[in-house]
Amino acid sequence: MSRREYETRAAVHPARERERVLDAIRAALRPRPEAPAAAAAPADALCALPAPGDAALRRFLAECAANCTEVILVRSPAEADTALAQILAPVEGGFYAQDAPELRRLLAPWAGRTLWSNAGACDAERAAGLTLAEALIAQTGSIVVSAACGGRAGSVLPDLHIVVARASQLAPSLAATLSALGPAFERASMACVITGPSRTADIEKLLVLGAHGPRRLVLLLRLDA
């Protein structure tokens, strides 16, 4: 590849390039191949699913254990306060948090160390990020966050990501979650299905947590009365 090659193509007009590609595709598909639109995937039948009811929570907890998400079950606001205090006690440095009433209340003791998402973006100095979740997925032990959960970086840049969610947010399957997620993009530019803390196995296929994102992922899961 030479610089010259780059220069000769730099003059290409965007609209013309678009037509060029689309025309090539249309020509390639003439005559149009027979391929009936596949019915929406009945994905519930494809990946093992939990039974409804309590089993969903059990499945969620088992999946979380397998993917290294730390789940703390809390039954009251006071229990949540205690649990959070225990997690944050050894953490040095500032926090970043989604600006939400529930997190404002929980983080009241650390208000001075917290940067709220309405005040700015998460920076690389933040030791912990706290967010709510859009949904939880029992089938895979996943936590869904979106840009509405305090932006993008707050859930990936700090070494510790703490999610506060309720058991009522538990969806049985990935399929059910995705069906509900479509409209979310009209209010948030990004969504991410998070399944455990950041990891890599690029060295000898050995699992190491905390590659680029959080080394710890903690879920404070409020069980509904």
């Binding site: 999946e63 993009f185 990004m190 991410c192 299905v193 399944t195 455990g196 803390p197 990891r199 994102g213």
Partner: peptide
């Protein structure tokens, strides 16, 4: 089962 971060 699913990768750690599945972003949209």
């Amino acid at each position: 089962p699913i990768t750690c971060y599945s972003s949209l």
